[in-house]
Design a protein around this nucleic acid. Structure first.
Lengths: 225, 225
DNA sequence: TAGATTGTTAATCGATTAACAATC
DNA sequence: TAGATTGTTAATCGATTAACAATC
């Protein structure tokens, strides 16, 4: 292989990317984008590892899952690596998402600039509150939930974001599934059941704080994992 | 041992709780609280596993790390288990937290009811914007960031929540450390460096969506992990 | 060239699963 | 009692680390 960067999706031969690796790829991507903004053209496994708290060996192993991007003695070209990681994560394309729930959290998500930057576009917000329907929030139209399916089909919507109170989450999830989304990001603090054709990621803000308090109370007696 | 539930923090002999287990404990806790609200007194490893997508063996193993709470033939008493898990996670006590950044996301976090419910209390919000300082949001006072240390010392603040734009995050983190917090929940999409006496948990909303898109594009070719 | 850094292998480590005797 | 379900062991599986030849 003459051009070591020519093999973005062809994978070195290690097969599918382990989930543990995928979660780190997003962090590498964020850090690489940051380095590029600072004018860096290359980086190394030890620099990435130091910034993110991983060993250099782990960084190299992770990056070798999907191609030969490094140059011995030099390191990695940031831009090439960004392109390759985006391809793996699927964010080399743009994803259309809908948000359900135009409450406090929903509004904050609509104003969040980071989604756009990483290839996600929230194309509409849905709610059942008549006082919200018809308005615009951060430039995004608030539409009645009853029009979800129609809208989703017409606008190539593939992702749904749930930001409604816990008791409403499952019903909203069912509607999103009926509307044909392929994945759901769930901010409601409740487990939702989905057909296994639809992927989900759950974010529970209170659980994040619990994990922090756990880390504090076990300080000095560091956990095994 | 006569009373199988008498050994909450004494641990069965397996020593410290692995991090992988701790992350599931929060999910068990949430599900158990939900079951109790529905009037259930007991549950089983298979029921918990089914609801959360784990095997029954994994549930039993996880719960056995910190005591003998199950009754063969019967299952687990929800209330006992809730108490034991809270003790492990540190949320049997109340934690005082401060929020830094009273923007869109910060405001949403101040209105989030789930923190209170799980034992966290946001006792003040900090910002540098003169038009915000002095106001109240969701019943929480907005104070100038310059008063952080003084306030934190006077109010037993142990946790800090960062909800400022990425470029400001490291400086805010430094201030929180100087103010004596023991842990930081960071919503800014940037890596922050902390002394290793201070714990951190990072939540990057765009990364959560990336993980969802990754799960979708690798559908049918399920990842190893 | 000499110095730096990769990709990969082998060894270690940790986490999950299956099975089952113990027991409510 | 018979049925159900636990706690624990052993086996399997996956992830991390250390080391180093290859190479820019």
């Amino acid at each position: 292989m003459d051009d070591p960067a020519s093999n973005a999706s062809g994978a070195t031969g290690s097969g599918p990317i382990p989930k543990a690796v995928a979660s780190r790829l997003s962090l590498y991507l964020r850090e690489l984008q940051h380095l590029i903004e600072q004018g860096e053209e290359t980086t190394s496994s030890s620099e990435l590892g130091r910034k993110l708290g991983f060993t250099d060996a782990q960084v190299r192993k992770d990056l070798a899952y999907f191609g030969h991007f490094g140059y011995p003695g030099i390191g990695y070209r940031c831009d090439k690596l960004v392109g390759a990681i985006k391809k793996i994560l699927g964010t080399d394309q743009q994803w259309h998402a809908v948000l359900v729930g135009a409450g406090n959290l929903g509004r904050a998500l609509l104003g969040y600039k980071g989604f756009q930057r990483q290839g996600f576009r929230v194309v509409a917000a849905f709610d059942t509150d008549a006082s919200k329907v018809g308005s615009q929030i951060e430039g995004v139209a608030v539409v009645h939930l009853d029009q979800l399916t129609e809208f989703a089909k017409a606008n190539r919507v593939r992702l749904g974001i749930i930001a409604v109170p816990a008791p409403a989450a499952q019903a909203v999830a069912n509607r999103l599934v009926a509307a044909g989304v392929e994945g759901i990001l769930n901010f409601a603090p409740v487990t939702i059941e989905l057909p296994d054709t639809v992927r989900q990621v759950g974010v529970d803000l209170a659980i994040e704080l619990e994990q922090l308090s756990f880390a504090i109370v076990t300080r000095g007696e560091p956990p095994t994992g």
